[in-house]
Structure formats: structure tokens, C-alpha cells
């Protein structure tokens, strides 16, 4: 699998070299990728689950004096234990809005709002866990330009969030008596999370080969999640994606 990832990296950067061109100020984009995820959600299992999860991201960004971005990201795939036991459907969807103001020629700082739905579903919920969270993050963005190569680094870190998670035993009477109303289960009984029980640093590196009109790019996203409600949730993810500006 590692060799496949290396090939994918190579292909992505080659495609950026062949097709990559100058950035526009505002544009829509679409991005396909694959994330290498390691998960331990204690509500779900005390074992570590792993998988390669395909992703699709669409969005709009505007880069003037200030930076605006809104995007929708969906991930869907299978994780399992030791590539062998308990194949589990992993579903994630999130909506992000980023805004940043200039702090220097190449740096901007601001905030991000993100709302996320994440579900683990084993065997039609004979076991499962969910995390819905809405959080405000610090957002930093910096551009590096060397000759025709552009690298844009982004860093986000949550300050405060609101999350709904399974309770102590996973399935309590609230879940049992509302099993015909899934959104109510997913979006009720929220708790506030902040720095001491919630950490999710995310680093994104976007590479563009600037030549003529900008169109294609590649991106590497690293994130780590630690969310400690009654049962802690740990997640580690490295996602490689390549996209096109429309």
C-alpha cells in the first residue's frame, strides 16, 4: 500500500507540474483524495482501527487582501482492525468557512468555523459511534514562492466547540427511544469542548506549479484529533488529494 501512495504522490505532483498554472483571485475548486486514517473511538472500541478513506472536496475561495474560503468535504470508506476483523463503514462530512486578514505580505491570520458529522457503523449499527461537532478555530495561512513553485501552508487549531457523542454505555435510553429519529440522536445532548478536552491541529500544504493560467494543484493534509467526552476519541489522518480550480 505504501508503494501505491508513493505512486499517487508522484502522479499528483507530476500532474501539477504538467498542468499547474498561475492562481486566480477567486475560484471554485474540486478535489479528490485519499486519507490514511487511524482511529480509536473508545465509544466504539478500545481497539485501533485503520483504513484508507477516499474523499471529495468542493468549495470556493477568494484571495484578495483578505482570504475567504468555504468548502464541503465528504469521506466514505471502510476501516477495520488489523486489516482483518470488524470491517466498519466510516462516514464523514464537514462544512468549513475560513476567513483571514493579512498580517504580512505573505501571511494571513483569522478564524475558521467548521461543522462535522462523523459516523462509524459496524454491521448496520450493531456497533457504532458518532461525533457531531461545531467549532471555532484559529486559522493561519502563509504562502511560500520559489521561482515557479508555490506552497501554501495553512494551520488550524480549535479554541472551542460543541459536540454530541455517545454516552457512557454508547446506547442509552435516549438513543433507544429515538431510534426512529437519527438526526435527533446525532444533534442532541451537545457538550462544550475546549482546549483541555479537545485538540485537533490540522496542517494543510497546497502545492502549485505556476505557469500560465492556474488550474491544477495537489494538497497534503495532516490532522490529529483528541476529543475527550465520557469516552475519548483519537484520530490520526494524512490525506493526499489533488484538485482543479474551475
Amino acid at each position: 500500500m505504501q508503494s501505491k501512495i508513493k505512486l499517487l504522490v508522484l502522479f499528483t505532483f507530476l500532474s501539477a507540474n504538467i498542468f499547474g498554472q498561475e492562481e486566480k483571485n477567486s475560484r471554485f475548486f474540486i478535489e479528490l483524495g485519499i486519507a490514511n486514517k487511524t482511529i480509536k473511538d473508545r465509544s466504539f472500541s478500545k481497539l485501533r482501527f485503520h483504513g484508507f478513506i477516499p474523499s471529495l472536496e468542493i468549495g470556493y475561495e477568494k484571495t484578495d487582501k483578505n482570504y475567504w474560503n468555504i468548502d464541503l468535504l465528504a469521506k466514505y470508506g471502510i476501516v477495520n482492525y488489523r486489516n482483518r476483523y470488524f470491517p466498519t463503514t466510516y462516514i464523514e462530512g464537514n462544512l468549513s468557512v475560513r476567513y483571514a486578514m493579512p498580517v504580512s505580505d505573505k501571511s494571513r491570520a483569522g478564524g475558521r468555523f467548521r461543522t462535522t458529522l462523523n459516523v462509524l457503523d459496524y454491521n448496520s449499527f450493531s456497533n457504532g459511534a458518532w461525533t457531531t461537532k461545531h467549532h471555532l478555530d484559529v486559522f493561519l495561512r502563509h504562502s511560500f514562492n520559489i521561482s515557479k513553485h508555490a506552497l501554501i501552508g495553512e494551520f488550524t487549531y480549535p479554541l472551542i466547540g460543541l459536540a454530541s457523542r455517545p454516552r457512557y454505555v454508547g446506547l442509552d435510553e435516549f438513543v433507544a427511544s429515538n431510534s426512529d429519529n437519527v438526526p435527533k440522536i446525532l444533534y442532541s445532548k451537545n457538550k462544550i469542548f475546549t482546549l483541555h478536552n479537545y485538540a485537533e491541529p490540522t496542517l494543510r500544504l497546497k502545492y502549485i506549479f505556476k505557469s500560465g493560467e492556474s488550474k491544477y494543484y495537489s494538497r497534503l493534509t495532516y490532522s490529529y484529533l483528541y476529543l475527550n467526552s465520557v469516552n475519548a476519541y483519537f484520530k490520526h489522518s494524512i490525506r493526499l488529494s489533488f484538485g482543479v480550480h474551475l
Binding site: F44, S45, K46, L47, Y81, R84, Y85, F86, Y122, N123, F125, S126, N127, G128, A129, V169, G170, L171, D172, E173, A176
Partner: peptide, 20 residues
């Protein structure tokens, strides 16, 4: 009582039990 979700074991077994 409603049962817990299945508890996975590293040898591939799983078990579950009521929590109410």
C-alpha cells in the same frame, strides 16, 4: 434491557450485554 454495542476483542471475538 437494550444491549450495549458489540465489544470487539483482539482475537476477533465480540460480545455484548444489557446496560439498563
Amino acid at each position: 434491557s437494550a444491549t450495549s454495542f458489540e465489544k470487539f476483542l483482539p482475537n476477533g471475538w465480540y460480545f455484548k450485554f444489557p446496560t439498563q
